[in-house]
Amino acid sequence: MSTDRSIVLFDLFGVVARHQRPGALGKMAARCHTPTDAFTTAYWACRPPYDAGQQSAPEYWTAVLRRLSLSVDADTIEELRLTDIDSWSRIDEPMVAYAQSLRDVAEVALLSNIPSDHADAFLAAQPWLHHLDHVAFSGKIKAAKPAPAAFHHCVVAMRAAPADFLFVDDREENVRAAQAMGMNGHVFTDRDELAAVIDAWLPTRGLTWS
């Protein structure tokens, strides 16, 4: 079932924002005087509850440090937290401009796996996010992709039908999860390919470029 709306739902990192800054994990590992490989393993192993809003930043970093058998103190946690936020702060300017341009012909929304404190920093630094039709951050909605609840949130919040959405993500497992919910999906590789997909999709929605 569709309500005949056209909603392009973007992932953030790897689509309209850059992936983590190169060398950031090594910098954080050095701060902890631990090997980068061990730090990286702990960083990602402890991440899911933090991304899904089930842990605060101090709780997440405490889990990381304890997994590495390191002492836990507030100063270390705050330094790691701020370095981590900075490492995920880069956007892809051409993709941001393209996403904004789509609002002439479609609704544009965003669904990102990002902890709550990261989301606050991103919203403060990137005012264009406030002009989208809906923004959903996993740490705020308490659900992270590819969990169905993350996609369901967008459907309910936008009062739309799953078929109204074209979900764009650089991770195939997330696109497949969206498709399982009844959304259209595209695995992002580059802007030109995405533009061709959207150009082909919009006419099926009864819309044309102005």
Rank of each mutant, 00 (worst) to 15 (best):
M1Q: 10
D4Q: 14
L9E: 11
L12Q: 14
L12M: 14
R18V: 15
R18I: 08
R21P: 07
R21C: 15
R21E: 13
G23M: 09
G26F: 10
M28A: 15
T34V: 10
A38V: 15
F39A: 09
A42C: 15
Y43D: 12
D51T: 15
D51Y: 13
D51N: 12
A52I: 01
A52V: 02
G53M: 09
S56M: 14
A57C: 09
L65F: 11
R66V: 03
R67D: 12
L70S: 02
L70M: 07
D73I: 13
T76P: 04
R81C: 08
L82R: 11
D84G: 10
I85G: 02
S87L: 07
W88D: 03
W88S: 03
S89F: 05
I91Q: 05
E93C: 10
P94R: 05
V96D: 04
A99T: 01
R103Q: 12
R103D: 04
R103K: 09
R103T: 07
R103E: 06
R103S: 11
V105H: 13
L110W: 07
L111A: 11
S112N: 07
I114G: 04
P115D: 05
F122T: 13
Q126T: 10
P127H: 09
H130D: 08
H130F: 03
L132D: 00
L132T: 03
L132Y: 05
H134P: 02
S138N: 11
S138V: 11
I141S: 00
K142M: 04
A144R: 04
P146A: 04
F151M: 02
V155S: 06
M158R: 08
A163S: 12
F167M: 04
F167R: 00
D169P: 01
D170N: 10
N174D: 07
N174T: 06
V175T: 00
V175Y: 03
A177I: 04
A178E: 01
A178W: 07
G182Y: 03
G182N: 02
G185C: 06
G185L: 07
V187F: 06
F188C: 03
T189H: 08
D199H: 09
W201N: 05
L202M: 05
P203F: 10
L207P: 01
L207A: 15
W209G: 01
